[in-house]
Amino acid sequence: MPDLTLYTNPMSRGRIARWMLEEVGQPYETVIVQFGDETIRGVNPMAKVPTVVHGERTITECAAICAYLADAFPAAGLAPATDDRADYYRWLFFAAGPVEQALTSNSLGWTPTAEQQGMVGFGSYDRVVDTLEQAVADLGDGWLTGDRFTAADLYVGAHLSWGTGFGTLPKRPAFMAFVERVNARPAARRAAEIDDALIAEMKRGA
């Protein structure tokens, strides 16, 4: 039996964790969690997916899952050397913090006032979008942390793919070019095919 288990729903952020697992290339088991199923509290007290269990370790939060798996399986080459991780950590947690907060707040119709912007981690939606655009613009054949694709590219790329696809981010040329690059990766395609097939199966059984 694999010592990696992914608790997920194919219509959730669990797609990011599956993509990361496919990049890592290690065998893993999948447990599908229906929305509202409180039994997952035994694994994650937040009752949220994705959650990854690796042996006796439990990892929650997408960015943490990506960072953990990159470190746990270094042969996959998904993290820079430990002394060269400034950009890696910066963009992983920029996407996990300001990007996530800004997109959610904007979708819920809450825009902080000029005075409130100093209190919230993301400042303003427009500032976050502009900063994200600067990060992925003009990369050429490079990636966010240099010449090699890492978990930071995966996580930022997943946010861009989801955001431009569902209209929470504008379809700026730099965003779309980055999305096309990351989605072309074989692991990204495999992960999407698995989750899309699960969605189709769930619909047939509904």
Rank of each mutant, 00 (worst) to 15 (best):
D126H: 06
A17R: 06
P186W: 08
A86S: 13
T104E: 12
R190L: 08
F35M: 11
V53W: 00
M1P: 14
L103G: 09
A67C: 07
D195P: 02
G97C: 09
A75K: 15
T58W: 04
W143V: 07
T164I: 04
D147E: 14
P27C: 04
A102T: 13
L103F: 09
F175C: 05
I59P: 03
R90E: 09
P74T: 02
V49L: 05
Y125R: 02
R181N: 08
P186G: 00
G36A: 03
Y89F: 12
P173K: 12
S105D: 14
D141L: 08
F166H: 13
V128M: 03
F93E: 03
G25N: 14
L169D: 09
V129K: 02
G97F: 05
G109A: 14
Y7W: 06
G25E: 14
A114Y: 00
M20N: 10
P80I: 04
I32P: 05
T150E: 01
Y89H: 12
L139V: 03
E180D: 15
A200N: 00
F178N: 10
V52P: 04
A197G: 00
A187I: 10
R181D: 10
P98D: 12
C62P: 03
I59S: 02
G121M: 11
A206E: 10
T104Q: 13
R189V: 15
F166C: 11
V136E: 05
A95Y: 01
D37A: 03
I16L: 15
G146D: 09
P80L: 03
D196W: 04
A67V: 12
R85D: 12
G42W: 06
E115L: 12
G42H: 08
W110A: 05
G36K: 06
Q101T: 13
V99N: 07
C62F: 01
D3A: 13
T168M: 15
D3E: 15
D147V: 04
P45V: 00
P45Q: 08
I194V: 15
L21S: 03
R204F: 01
D195C: 01
L169Q: 07
G142E: 08
A102M: 14
V33T: 04
V24Q: 11
R15F: 05
L4K: 07
G165T: 04
D138H: 12
V43T: 14
E193Q: 13
L21H: 05
L160W: 06
A184T: 14
R85G: 11
Y28R: 03
G77N: 10
R90I: 07
T60W: 02
T113P: 01
V128G: 02
D141P: 00
E56C: 03
R127D: 09
C62I: 01
A151Y: 02
A17H: 10
P170Q: 06
D83R: 13
D141E: 15
A152K: 08
G140N: 05
L154Y: 09
A200G: 00
N106I: 01
A114M: 11
A184Y: 11
G77P: 12
D37E: 05
P98C: 05
L92G: 13
A188M: 06
F122Y: 15
D196T: 05
A197D: 02
A197F: 06
L169I: 01
R181F: 07
D87R: 15
P186H: 02
W143C: 01
L6D: 03
G163M: 10
V99R: 02
D83A: 15
E201W: 02
